[in-house]
Simulated assay, not measured.
Amino acid sequence: MSTVRVGPMRRGGAVTADSGMNYAALGATSRPDVVPFPPSGFHAAEYRHRIGSGARRFDLAGRALMTWGALRHAGFQVDEVRAEPVSQSPRGAGPLFLEDGTPWITPGMTARLASDDPAAVTGRVKVLTTLDEPGRIGYVFGTMTGSTEVSERFLLVEHGEDDAVHVILRSLWEAPSSRLGRLARAADARQRKLDERIVRALHPSFSVG
């Protein structure tokens, strides 16, 4: 079955270092070796969840992913979405939109996240990199100054040679002080639970409750 593009697709791009971020290891989650070798003071993890098979499932999941669907389905409020102006775009392309006006995630885009979950990030995030290749689409986003969390996530939808469609999430977050003991372990557990919820959020049967 041929792939039906249901949203605007483009080659990936990246933004340059930005002083508005609240951490220095920008783009670290785009590298698989960040999991065994995270930057000093950070923890990292990777999750992989199958959400179906076939080109149609890949296209629908890719469209949802690139319009903030994984985060919204996981219980986040996503608002104040702002695309980077054409004059500042690394590829000079500016913002992209679906037919109904929904903004498509592009490098430099920012948004405000909010959630009732105390473990979830609240505050502005910025898209650092996007990826659009045959069978792979996704983006890296990180937290900005003023956010309640110091973290970065790489979210990817992948259509494999076996026709399976997976969501992959690679995350990096500031490690709680080891002096906090039990509280530090609890904070890590909450972070991992949140990431597991995000990576499952594009499955057709997923429910936040």
Rank of each mutant, 00 (worst) to 15 (best):
K126R: 15
E99A: 15
E80S: 11
L131N: 10
E149Q: 15
K126E: 04
P95Q: 07
L180D: 11
I105Q: 05
A175F: 00
F141W: 15
F154R: 09
F141D: 10
M109Q: 13
Y139R: 06
L180F: 00
L156D: 14
G123E: 05
S89H: 13
D116T: 10
V157M: 05
E80D: 15
P176C: 02
Y139F: 15
S115G: 09
L128Q: 12
V140F: 01
R124E: 14
A120F: 06
S87D: 10
A119D: 13
F76V: 03
L98G: 08
D162R: 00
D163N: 14
S171R: 12
E80N: 13
P107I: 07
H166F: 10
D162K: 00
P118R: 00
P90G: 04
P95M: 08
Q77N: 13
V125T: 09
A120T: 07
G123D: 08
R112P: 02
L183M: 11
S151P: 00
P85Y: 06
G108C: 04
S89Y: 05
W104M: 13
S171L: 05
M144C: 15
G92M: 06
A184T: 03
M144H: 12
R179S: 14
G101L: 06
R170I: 02
L169W: 01
G123L: 05
T106N: 08
P118C: 01
R82M: 12
G146N: 06
S87Q: 13
V78A: 07
T148Q: 04
